[in-house]
Amino acid sequence: MSNFLLDLSFGVKRSDGYVSDIWRASTTRLGDFHLATSSIAGTEEYRFNKSGMCRSAHSGADAAPEALRDRAGFRWRRAATPPRGSGGAARVAWIAFPTDYLSRPTVADDGEIFWIAAAPEGGATYVEFAYAAEPEENIRGVLDIMQDRTLVRCAALPNGETLVIFCYHADWDNKDLRVPGGSIADDVLFSADDPLASGRPLRHRFGPAPKDEEAVMLLEMGGAAITN
C-alpha cells in the first residue's frame, strides 16, 4: 500500500518543449500535504500539516554553500477550510508560470510527469491548491461551470476534506528582470527574449513570505547568468 493518498509529479510545458521545473504534490495518509520542487540549487518544500500549521524549507544541493543547506524557512497558519455547504474552499498555494520564461528541458522525461499545457505566448499558467469540505463531485461541478479552469487532481483527506489542484491560463506582463549577484555570483537575467539564446537554464521562484491565513504565492521564471 502506498504511503501517499496523492503523489503527483507535474510541470508546465510549451508546445516547443520548453518546460517549468518539475513539482511534486503529495499527501500523506495522515493528511499532511507537501509541495516541493528540485533544481540545481536544491529542493524547496512547502508543508501544510493537518493541524493547519505550515512551514517552508530549503535543502541545498551538494554543491551549494553550507549556508544554503537545510534552511528552515517560514512558519504560518493556513486559512481554515470553510464548512461543508458554505460553498467555499480555502486556497493555500498558487504558482504562476509565465509562458515566455519557460526553459529548455535539461532532465529526461520518465513518462511519470503530468504535463500541464502552457498558456499562449504572453500569458501565464496558474496552478492552484485549495482545501474544500465538499466532496469531489461537487468540486467537479463547480469547475465544469468555470470553464476556464481545469481540474488537475483531487485527493480525499482523512478528515473528510478534499485537496483540490486546478489550473488555468491568464494574462501576464512580460518584463525583463535582472537579479544582481553581488560580489559572489553573476547577475541573473530573466528575459522573455532570451538574448543569450541560453534556454534559460536557471529556474528561480519568487514570492513573499506568507502570513497567517495567506496563501503561498510563487512566481517561477527561468533565467540565465550574465557576466557582470
Binding site: P82, S86, G88, A90, R91, N138, Q147, D148, Y168, E214
Partner: peptide, 19 residues
C-alpha cells in the same frame, strides 16, 4: 453549487475574467 474562494489576503477568484 459551491464556489472556490481564496484565503483572506487574496482576491476572490470565481473564474478568471478578462476585462
Amino acid at each position: 453549487m459551491p464556489a472556490l474562494h481564496s484565503s483572506r489576503a487574496c482576491p476572490v477568484t470565481v473564474g478568471v475574467r478578462r476585462i
